[in-house]
């Protein structure tokens, strides 16, 4: 399984940023099992790329192929299936249900296409140190805690690609390592790929490739 980027170019990007980029306007292939680090400065379109891959935005030229099918031709139902089975994500802005409890936030994702049992949620929460937050409202958790909730949520489904958009920005060194370990384990079980986009290379993420955006 692979994702191919063919001459993908956001419609809004400045000329000088394209020349430096290893991704924009190039042909790039991401394979399952790979660990890919995308390094980019602010404003170079990192979040846009992640959103293009997840199918949230379509304001680009060129094409993105998943399993040789252009995702720009997917309809709403096909995207729903794509997001249930093939691709998972940790958003930079997290996108949690603020008025629901942490457990509800995790369960709503898990029930959609369960990969783990409910007890696994508690185990993961414990591993990342938020086990006592499960029954608290999400909006009462700190940003760092919310980041860990978003990470655990992304691991509740089957996937071939895990998209991470600055997933550790509010975590300390210790928590970053724990979270990274958990994600690498889960990805390995699924023989999936991690595509991690961040401002600079993260040393404890053993990337197979580092691409500068």
């Amino acid at each position: 399984m692979q994702i191919q980027l063919q001459q993908v170019l956001p419609t809004f990007i400045e000329e000088e940023k394209i020349a430096q980029s290893k991704i924009w306007n190039n042909n790039v292939v991401f394979n399952t099992g790979e660990k890919i680090q995308i390094v980019a400065a602010s404003g170079s379109g990192k979040t846009s790329l992640i959103h293009f891959l997840y199918g949230l935005r379509k304001d680009y030229n060129g094409s993105i192929l998943y399993d040789n099918n252009s995702i720009s031709h997917f309809d709403a139902e096909k995207f729903a299936t794509y997001r249930q089975q093939n691709i998972s994500i940790v958003f930079q802005d997290l996108r949690l249900f603020a008025e629901q409890t942490v457990l509800q936030n995790l369960e709503i994702k898990r029930q959609l296409n369960p990969y783990h049992t409910e007890s696994k949620i508690a185990a993961m929460a414990k591993r990342l140190g938020i086990e006592n937050k499960l029954h608290k409202l999400c909006k009462t958790c700190s940003y760092g805690e919310q980041q860990r909730i978003a990470i655990i949520r992304s691991l509740q489904q089957p996937f071939n690609f895990l998209l991470l958009d600055e997933p550790f920005s509010h975590l300390d060194e210790n928590n970053r390592k724990k979270a990274m370990e958990l994600m690498e384990e889960e990805t390995a079980i699924r023989k999936a790929a991690i595509i991690l986009a961040d401002l600079k290379a993260i040393e404890y993420f053993k990337a197979d490739r580092i691409l500068h955006l």
Binding site: A76, E77, A80, I108
Partner: peptide, 15 residues
Amino acid sequence: ENLQLLLTLGYSPHW
């Protein structure tokens, strides 16, 4: 907002 997020998470609009 909640419905949009459900769709983003992969809930099918038809379902």
